[in-house]
Design a protein around this nucleic acid. Structure first.
Lengths: 335, 335
DNA sequence: TTGTATGCGTTATCAG
DNA sequence: CTGATAACGCATACAA
C-alpha cells in the first residue's frame, strides 16, 4: 500500500505529469475539465505530495526546528508551547529536539535539522556550549536563527530573554526588605549568560541597601543531580544564610529538600525565592515565592521574530535582543 | 555559502559523481589513491551527504517520530527521555511532536512525520482521539508503530503501558488499610483506557475489603484547567471524602489546592495518593503518596520494541502488550 | 492548453 | 577500477 504519486495519477488519467502537477496546484493555464478530473482523482486516491521531494526541490520544509536542553523542565516546555502557538497558526510544523546539556548532542541535532532544511532554527544553548561556531556556520548558510534564554554573547543573532537582572534585583530586594541580611544565592553554572545577569541583579540590590557582597554566599552548580545536594548542604552548614534565592526549578526544590533534611532553621517568612516556573510553589511549606519567567511569552516572541525573518528573507545577521519582563510573586506563609 | 555536494567534489577532482560516491561510502572496488583524495577533499570542504536526497532515494530517514499529548507533563517528558536513550544509541534521531490533546493536531503531526518517512512512530493518543483509522492507515503503509500509555483497544499494534490496575489497586488498598472508608477517586476522562483500568483497580480493592462502591465518589474530568476545580470542589462539598486518590499530576495538585482553599478537614495521615510523577510529592503538606508510573522505562521499552520491528522488518501488525509495573511510595506526614 | 526535458543530491546498475 | 545513466517525486522552462 505505497503512497500514490503524481506519476500514478498521470498514468491513470492518460496525462503527463506536468499537467497533473499544474492541475494540482491550480495553475491558470489549464483546462477546467482536466483540472476537475485530476482533482477528483487525487482526492479519491487520497493523494498527498511527497514533502521530501518538495524539500529537495525547493530547499525548504515548512518546518522550524527547536533545540532546548531539556523538555522535562517547565520553562522550556512552556516556551515550546509559545513557539508552537504561533508557528502552527502560520502553517509551520515545529520539530523539537533536546541537547540534554550536551554540546555534542546539540551539534548532532543542528546537523540533522539543517540537513533536513528546516526553514529556521530556535535554540537555547546547552550548558556545555561555549564555542558557537556551529551556529555561525548555519548563519553563513543562510538559515534564520533566534537564540532564546540560554544565549551567548559570541553569536550575532536575534535573541529573546527574560529580564534576569531585573528579576534577580527585585527578588533580592524583597528578601532584604523582609529583614534578611545573609542571602544565599544558589545558581546555575557561572558561564551561562543568565547566571551572570542574575548575579548582577543580586549584587545591585545588595548594594542599594548597603549590604556587603559576600562571595561565599554564592554557589554555582552544574546539572548533575548529586552536585546540587552537596553544594547546598555546604553553604547551609558553613554560611548559615537567613534566606535562599535560587536560580531554577530544580535548585529551588533541592534547596527545600536540603533544608528539610537537615532540619535547618531558616525563618519562614519570605525566606525562599526562586527563578522558577513550578506550578506547585504555593503548595510548598513554607510557600516558595517566585520570579516567574514568562516562558510562553518568550517562546512566542522568539517564534514571531523567526517567522518574520523567514518570510521576509531578512538577513540572518540581525541583532535585536528582546527582553521580556519577569513577574515576582511574593508568598508568605500563614503560620 | 551553499552546502557542498558530491557533484562539487567530482568537478573539483575531475572525477565522476559515482566514483566520488563510492569513495565516500568506502566501496572496495576503488583505487586507494583516489579514495584518499576524495576523502581528504570531502573532509576539508566539510562535506555532509544531503539527508533529504537520501530519504527520497531510500524511503527512510533514520529518524523515529514521537507524538504525545503534552510535553509539559512529567510523565510524557520522562517517557521521551527513555525513548531517546535507546534511539540515540542506535543512531536514530527522535522527532518530537505534541498533539495538545487535539485529534486534528494528532492527524496533522502524523501526516508530517509519515510524509517525511520516519522509520517508525511512537504515539500516545490525544484525549480526543476515538477514531483510530489514521493509525490503521499508516500501518497499511507499513510504518512500524508502537502505542504507549494512551492506548486504544481499536488498534492492533504493539503497546506499552503501566500496570494501571495494579497501581490503583495498591493505592486504594493502602488508603483502606490506613482506615479510610470514603475514598474519592478523581480521574481522567472516562473514555481513556488508563482511566477504566484504574477504576477497575480501585473497585477491586474496595470489594476485597468489603466496602461498597459508591459512584458518587468517582469524578472524571477533562483537560481544561477550570473543569478540575469545579469537579473537585463538588465532590468535596457533597461527598465529604476522607481520602483522595487522583489520577494525574495535575489532578493531584488541583485537589491539594482545593482542599487548602476550602480549608477542608481531611485527616492527614496517608490521605492523598496519586498517579503522578511529580518531583515534589514529598515536599507537599501533607506529603503526597504516589503511584509512580515508570515513564522512562515505558519509553525505553516502547522504543526498543519499535526499533526491533524496524530493523527486523517485522510485520507492523504485531500485537504484543507489555505492562510495566508501577511503584507505590507511601508517605506519611510527621505531624 | 498540454507535453517534454531538466534538475534538486544521491546511489545502483550496467558498461567500459 | 571508473564513468555514464536512470531513478526517487516534484515543479518548471521550454516546445509544441
Amino acid at each position: 500500500m505505497e503512497a500514490i504519486t503524481i506519476k500514478d495519477i498521470a498514468k491513470a488519467l492518460n496525462l503527463s505529469t506536468s499537467t497533473v502537477s499544474r492541475a494540482l496546484r491550480g495553475s491558470y493555464e489549464i483546462n477546467s475539465e482536466t483540472k476537475k478530473l485530476v482533482l477528483e482523482y487525487a482526492e479519491k486516491m487520497n493523494y498527498h505530495p511527497n514533502p521530501i521531494a518538495l524539500s529537495l526541490k525547493e530547499n525548504r520544509s515548512r518546518a522550524i526546528g527547536v533545540i532546548v536542553p531539556e523538555i522535562a523542565n517547565n520553562f522550556f516546555s512552556q516556551a515550546i508551547n509559545g513557539i508552537e502557538a504561533v508557528a502552527y497558526d502560520r502553517g509551520y510544523h515545529v520539530v523539537i529536539f533536546q541537547s540534554h546539556e550536551s554540546y555534542e548532542r546539540e551539534l548532532s541535532n543542528i546537523q540533522h535539522l539543517v540537513g533536513r532544511k528546516v526553514d529556521g532554527l530556535l535554540i537555547s544553548l546547552s550548558g556545555e556550549t561555549t564555542d558557537v561556531s556551529h551556529l555561525q556556520e548555519i548563519q553563513r548558510r543562510g538559515v534564520p536563527l533566534v537564540v532564546f534564554d540560554r544565549i551567548s554573547n559570541e553569536i550575532e543573532a536575534n535573541k529573546v530573554i527574560a529580564d534576569n537582572f531585573q528579576g534577580a534585583f527585585e527578588a533580592t530586594e524583597h528578601l532584604i526588605l523582609s529583614g534578611r541580611k545573609r542571602i544565599a544565592h544558589i545558581t546555575s553554572p557561572s558561564l551561562l549568560y543568565t547566571t551572570s545577569q542574575r548575579l548582577e541583579g543580586y549584587k545591585a540590590a545588595l548594594e542599594k541597601h548597603g549590604i556587603a557582597f559576600d562571595e561565599n554566599l554564592v554557589r554555582y552548580c552544574g546539572f548533575a543531580p548529586e552536585e546540587a545536594q552537596q553544594v547546598i548542604f555546604d553553604v547551609l552548614d558553613k554560611q548559615h544564610p537567613d534566606a535562599i534565592f535560587t536560580a531554577s526549578d530544580r535548585l529551588a526544590l533541592d534547596s527545600y529538600a536540603a533544608v528539610k533534611a537537615k532540619d535547618i532553621d531558616i525563618p519562614k517568612q519570605v525566606a525562599f525565592i526562586g527563578f522558577t516556573n513550578l506550578q506547585v510553589a504555593h503548595l510548598l511549606d513554607p510557600p516558595l515565592s517566585t520570579v516567574v519567567q514568562p516562558a510562553f511569552e518568550i517562546g512566542k516572541t522568539a517564534a514571531e521574530i523567526l517567522l518574520e525573518t523567514i518570510e521576509n528573507k531578512q538577513t540572518a545577521k540581525a541583532v535585536k535582543t528582546v527582553k521580556i519582563p519577569t513577574e515576582v510573586n511574593l508568598r508568605t506563609s500563614s503560620n
